[in-house]
């Protein structure tokens, strides 16, 4: 049994002062689906656990046509999955969140907790990168905005500084109508992805105008495959071009062996799944 003090601040301001007071002894909790597993395994043994669940409007989801989607960090996966503007304007997000674990977990785990954990195996990050998402990091000293692909630094490491909280996720209005999401889970549908692929694309007359490609479960962070995007951007979309893009994507990933498969197998999967996702996205775009 880990003994810890439990705090439920009712404002962000109070949360920041608790974070400053306790420093490295404190961990933040929202849904608890990640932190509690770490604590049970004794990987984390915080002296103080600070819950963000009582902060008002921390789970708010709003959409404005010119600004896009703003998701409070405390919104749970299930609420994002079922949000009407998400279903209507961001089908990629709806599809992605629908595939995360199962409803019991989606009703607990929050998007802020998911991203701030920096776990490369989870699904939302890749799709949010494919939609140019950025995150707002707030501290008692102020706010800054970081692109999500720059937020993920290393295995379980993010750009969050001491005393900072991830408070909001901003997804701009969707500019690329074609999309696809592949979560490859051959063991069980309720597994982490062996490889996850999220893609958005805009085409005109058989040419790729713009593209974003995000991957999860393929490296120490969620990957934004910029070199692969550059292969296709501005070029005619041919089967050879899609194959080349998928090939380049595999060079941007550094998967490791685990019980879902060897690194070598995952590289093979990336080449196949990126091509298939691109084909589906291109089809939806036109």
């Amino acid at each position: 049994m880990i003994r810890f003090d439990y705090q439920e601040p009712t404002t962000l301001k109070k949360a920041f002062s608790l974070l400053e007071k306790h420093g490295d002894d404190a961990r933040v909790i929202a849904g608890g689906t990640s932190l509690l597993i770490m604590m049970r395994q004794r990987l984390l043994m915080p002296k103080v656990v600070i819950s963000l669940t009582r902060i008002p409007k921390f789970d708010r989801i709003t959409y404005k046509p010119n600004d896009g989607l703003r998701i409070g960090a405390g919104a749970c996966h299930r609420d994002i999955e079922l949000s009407p503007p998400v279903k209507k304007h961001y089908p990629l997000l709806h599809e992605t969140f629908r595939k995360v674990a199962q409803p019991r977990i989606r009703n607990m785990g929050t998007i802020g907790g998911n991203l701030a954990a920096g776990d490369p195996l989870t699904d939302p990050g890749a799709s949010l990168i494919a939609l140019d998402a950025e995150v707002t990091l707030t501290s008692s000293k102020g706010q800054r905005t970081v692109r999500l692909d720059e937020f993920f630094v290393d295995y379980y490491q993010t750009a969050l500084e001491a005393g900072e909280l991830l408070t909001e996720i901003h997804v701009p209005p969707p500019e690329r109508p074609g999309w696809s999401h592949i979560k490859f889970t051959p063991r069980s549908i309720e597994d982490f992805a062996t490889v996850g692929v999220a893609i958005t694309v805009k085409t005109s007359d058989g040419t790729c105008e713009d593209i974003r490609l995000g991957l999860n479960s393929v490296a120490s962070t969620i990957v934004h495959a910029k070199k692969a995007e550059a292969v296709l951007r501005g070029k005619p979309i041919t089967e050879a071009a899609l194959r080349e893009m998928a090939e380049v994507a595999s060079t941007e990933c550094e998967p490791t062996d685990d019980n879902r498969g060897s690194a070598e197998y995952k590289l093979d999967l990336i080449k196949v799944l990126v091509r298939r996702a691109a084909e589906e996205a291109v089809q939806r775009a036109s």
Partner: peptide, 16 residues
Amino acid sequence: PINPNFSDYRIPSMRD
């Protein structure tokens, strides 16, 4: 054993 839990040791779920 390095997969001594149901996260690492998967069994088929109802949906599988």
